[in-house]
């Protein structure tokens, strides 16, 4: 394949040129998550000629993914192929000389540490807890990362640059309880494509050093109601922020700063404990997950989700029955309760 021809149209674009294309081809990008956002973003980056891509994902392909997770096929869903593996195969069909490292596993601080050095981390995750870990990892290594998330027809994105404005922890002040997720209110592919397009464009600007062109705002849209918003958030930068402030402690990298999952002996169940600063409301959870609710009292509620039973206690703890292990339990907790 002739590299000059392959990237010719991108090089012709005034913002990239020969120099920009060379920078793209020298860059190492870590893509965390290979679901809807991750598979789309990975494909666009590989087509654009990014030098090396590391793709991390803990999940496998299911039929319900195929409507929007565009790297995957019916054969992948039938074989329950891990997403990272299925993605790599398709990405190499698209560009056979691409350098793609995959990790089938849950992104944790040690795993990300092993992926360094990198120029950029892009978020294609489905939970806030891991995003805060990405936030702390990127800040510790002084590299940028790009937050992106979507649900329904709504999406948002924000680019975090060390030393240049607030980080995600400054903006969120604690972990939100999850209300709507793709598993409860659904998602349409155009919302994913909007977010991915924004993330990839910001990535191209960062990697080609076109810093003055970066958006510089927290940005959201709803492709169904046609609303959009863009807010300059510089004033939210917290000089005492434990992630990006004057004396950072990077709490999400410490074991105590992570949620815990442990298999309960002899009960075919896993207990998940939330992060210390997460607030859980039984009332709110019962309301959001009406269709899954089977029992509720003042101490706990019981949700039946896809043949699994999740018992949520007032202190935020959950005991989850019918899961295959701790990774699945944590994933279910993060998707339905939060973190």
């Amino acid at each position: 394949m002739n590299t000059e021809e392959r990237f010719s149209r991108q090089r012709l674009f005034h913002g990239i040129g020969w120099e920009g294309q060379e920078r793209l081809q020298e860059a190492h990008v870590i893509m965390v998550g290979a679901g809807a956002l991750g598979s789309l973003t990975a494909e666009t980056l590989v087509r654009a000629g990014v030098g090396k891509l590391t793709l991390i994902d803990r999940d496998y392909v299911e039929e319900s993914n195929l409507q929007r997770q565009q790297l995957y096929t019916e054969a992948d869903a039938e074989a329950c192929t891990p997403k990272a593996e299925a993605a790599k195969k398709r990405l190499l069909d698209i560009r056979s000389d691409a350098s793609i490292e995959i990790i089938v596993g849950e992104a944790d601080p040690a795993l990300l540490e092993n992926c360094m050095p990198a120029d950029l981390i892009i978020d294609g995750l489905d939970n806030m807890e891991t995003r805060l870990m990405i936030n702390d990892t990127a800040l510790k290594h002084q590299i940028p990362w790009i937050y992106g998330a979507c649900v329904g027809a709504y999406g948002l994105s924000y680019t975090v640059r060390p030393g240049q404005g607030p980080c995600l922890r400054c903006l969120m002040k604690g972990i939100p309880m999850e209300g709507e997720t793709c598993d409860t209110v659904g998602i349409i592919a155009p919302a994913v494509q909007f977010v991915s397009a924004t993330q990839v464009t910001e990535a191209m600007k960062l990697l080609t050093h076109s810093f003055e062109q970066l958006r510089g705002t927290l940005w959201s849209f709803d492709v169904w109601s046609n609303e959009s918003s863009s807010i300059y958030v510089d004033s939210l930068q917290d000089k005492d922020c434990p992630s990006c402030g004057e004396s950072p402690a990077y709490p999400a990298l410490a074991w105590s700063g992570r949620s815990k999952a442990e298999t309960l002996c002899g009960r075919d169940a896993v207990q998940v404990k939330p992060l210390p600063d997460m607030q859980v409301s039984l009332e709110q959870t019962a309301d959001v997950h009406k269709q899954h609710l089977s029992k509720a009292n003042q101490h706990l509620l019981v949700l039946n989700i896809e043949n699994k039973r999740l018992v949520l206690f007032k202190d935020g703890r959950a005991i989850i029955h019918g899961v295959s292990g701790e990774v699945e339990a944590r994933s279910l907790y993060q998707r339905y309760i939060g973190g």
Partner: peptide, 10 residues
Amino acid sequence: IEIIHFVGGG
């Protein structure tokens, strides 16, 4: 008024 709320999906 501009309001942006955080979501977790992706």
